[in-house]
């Protein structure tokens, strides 16, 4: 099974990298872009384990390692059964 975890800054945290990307896009004429938030994507291959276990451990290690909960939030999904 493969899962995809998306880590990005919380809304309360400034993201200067996202701001810079937004400014660049504006310069290119995409003025309709209101905001850009930059994040990280992890695609993780898992050994055969029960789905219930996946639902327990993925948020666990995402919170412990992949994201720093003080500044970041994460979401995840199964991308390959």
């Amino acid at each position: 099974m493969k899962v995809r975890i998306l880590v990005s800054f919380k809304n309360s945290v400034l993201d200067p990298q996202g701001q810079t990307v937004k400014n660049a896009l504006h310069t290119l004429g995409y003025g309709f872009i209101k905001d850009v938030r930059q994040g990280k994507v992890f695609e993780i291959d898992l050994k055969e384990i029960p789905r219930s276990e996946v639902e327990k451990v993925v948020p666990e290690f995402a919170d412990k390692v992949l994201a720093n909960p003080i500044i970041e939030k994460f979401s995840w999904q199964i991308i390959e059964e």
């Binding site: 400034l14 200067p16 990298q17 810079t20 003080i70």
Partner: peptide
């Protein structure tokens, strides 16, 4: 307590 972010001027 707290965390570090990228420098303001990147």
């Amino acid at each position: 307590p707290g965390a570090m972010l990228r420098n303001k001027n990147l």
